[in-house]
Amino acid sequence: MTDDHQLRVSKIRNGTVIDHVAAGQALNVLAILGIDGTSGEAVSVGMNVPSDRLGRKDIVKVEGRELSQSEVDVLSLIAPAASINIVRDYDVVEKNRVVRPDAVASIISCPNRNCISNADEPIRSRFTVLSDGVRCDYCETIVREDEVAANLDVN
């Protein structure tokens, strides 16, 4: 019998492994990255797997696609401890941490229903990133880090 780990999330040959994602956030990670399986890439997701660092963590593996730093930086808002491993021919060739961007657009919708960014206007939602959350560039509403996942605008 293969070991448990193999059963949960198999190794990938080429692609990106997003490790140390806060438990429960894997599907939000995929949503933010715009990965929904329609473009054919193989995606493995492990949720609530034991982790020395986090107790429990999620892990996401995307076969055949190398994610750029700017693509993954938005993940810092929901998975600040995440590490990004680029895999080529089963070897990790690059390992990076997510870096907080200065601003994010079209990722979060403003929780203030009366904000102009929620009206039918030709603009995208835009937030400035603070040390412990984000702030709407239009109505200045502050969304705390622990509220970001509930306000993702990517589905």
């Binding site: 009366n114 904000c115 960014s117 206007e121 709407c136 239009y138 109505c139 200045e140």
Partner: peptide, 13 residues
């Protein structure tokens, strides 16, 4: 003057 928060910021763009 507008009833939505952020309206003036958007308009100025």
């Amino acid at each position: 003057r507008h009833p939505s928060e952020g309206a003036a910021t958007m308009a100025s763009e």
